[in-house]
């Protein structure tokens, strides 16, 4: 049974203080705290690249798990803001980390739903090819495409990278997945001429209407009930989106953490950043993972903690 064994993260040290610049962007410090939820946004240093932060996360993961780079059979990177269009950044990470020539590497072009999609892709790929060690990387620095004067996006996105180790002896097993796309809304969250555009109302409506129903459906698909879920790990779009989904599930807010206030919405990294902490809590036996956004797309699964034998 292939599943999640360990997660390593990298959050740049640089921070932007959202409270200080709220008013210049048509907001208030109260709105930043209570609605948007991101007090600070993590930012790449001037000399940092997407490759740098992705490789840092992979290096930490290998070191933390005492894994020889030669053992990695597949490395997949989720993101859409690499340093260069060509080659695929997974190959660049392969080169920097000195992975084995037999290691498969490819990229997945997805946004906020990408980590959960990626879990399904990498575990299926490993099973199909009899692989034992896989690494799923998320690295998508939106600071590259956000207009710092855009009121809709400038207070939201932060930079980070994560690396998730999947093995046959995991801490968490992967359950059944659900996926979806509402392509008619693709333009509502899009990058045009290298600048991000977001129709906040359209994205809010999408998240508030589609996601609670999809989460309920995924729980049933996994032969579980709402009360058996210990933690809902939702993409950290904003505090208000997380609160609204919590209301509409409905769920006990204690089970739906908001953990991104010090670094922002890190796109496909938001779920693994949370999981890296939540996995350390044995009380979290069943966790829902739900990514949603760009596409407009969504992907959800339930992960189950394995009993120690």
């Amino acid at each position: 049974m292939i599943g999640i064994t360990s997660i390593a993260t990298y959050i740049p040290e640089n921070r932007i203080d959202n409270s200080q610049r709220a008013e210049s962007l048509g907001s208030t410090p109260e709105q930043v705290k209570d609605r948007i939820g991101f007090l600070q946004l993590a930012r790449l240093a001037d000399d940092q690249t997407t490759l740098d932060i992705a490789a840092q996360a992979v290096e930490t993961l290998l070191h933390k798990n005492s894994i020889n780079p030669d053992l990695i059979d597949v490395l997949i990177v989720v993101g859409q803001n690499p340093d260069r269009k060509i080659p695929h950044i997974s190959a660049e990470i392969h080169g920097r980390m000195g992975l084995s020539p037999s290691c498969a590497c490819f990229d997945l072009g997805l946004g906020c739903s990408g980590f959960v999609y990626g879990l399904s892709v990498i575990s299926s790929f490993m099973r199909a090819n009899n692989m034992r060690h896989g690494v799923l990387v998320t690295a998508d620095p939106y600071s590259r495409i956000v207009d710092p004067k855009d009121k809709s996006t400038a207070l939201i996105f932060g930079d980070a990278a994560t690396a998730t180790l999947l093995t046959e002896n995991p801490l968490y097993e992967l359950g059944s997945f659900t996926f979806g796309t509402q392509g008619s809304g693709a333009d509502e969250l899009s990058c045009n001429n290298s600048v991000l555009f977001m129709n906040g109302r359209a994205v809010f409506n999408f998240a508030a209407t589609i996601i609670p129903e999809n989460i309920r459906e995924t729980i049933v698909k996994n032969n579980l009930s709402m009360d058996m879920i210990d933690c809902f790990v939702l993409h950290q779009g904003s505090r208000y989106i997380v609160d609204t989904i919590t209301d509409r599930l409905p769920s006990d807010p204690q089970k739906v953490p908001f953990m991104a206030s010090e670094y922002g919405n890190t796109v496909s990294s938001s779920i693994p950043l949370m999981l890296s902490q939540l996995m350390d809590q044995p009380k979290n036996k069943h966790m829902v993972l739900c990514g949603f956004g760009l596409g407009l797309s969504w992907s959800t699964t339930v992960i189950k903690r394995r009993e120690k034998k």
């Binding site: 709105q31 906040g200 109302r201 809010f204 508030a208 904003s238 208000y240």
Partner: peptide, 25 residues
Amino acid sequence: DSLGMFNVILVLQEKYQIDIPDADI
């Protein structure tokens, strides 16, 4: 605030089964 208004409008759309366009908001 504006985020709250998105939610109010959504609840009203669902309750009365109408679409309220951005231009009217």
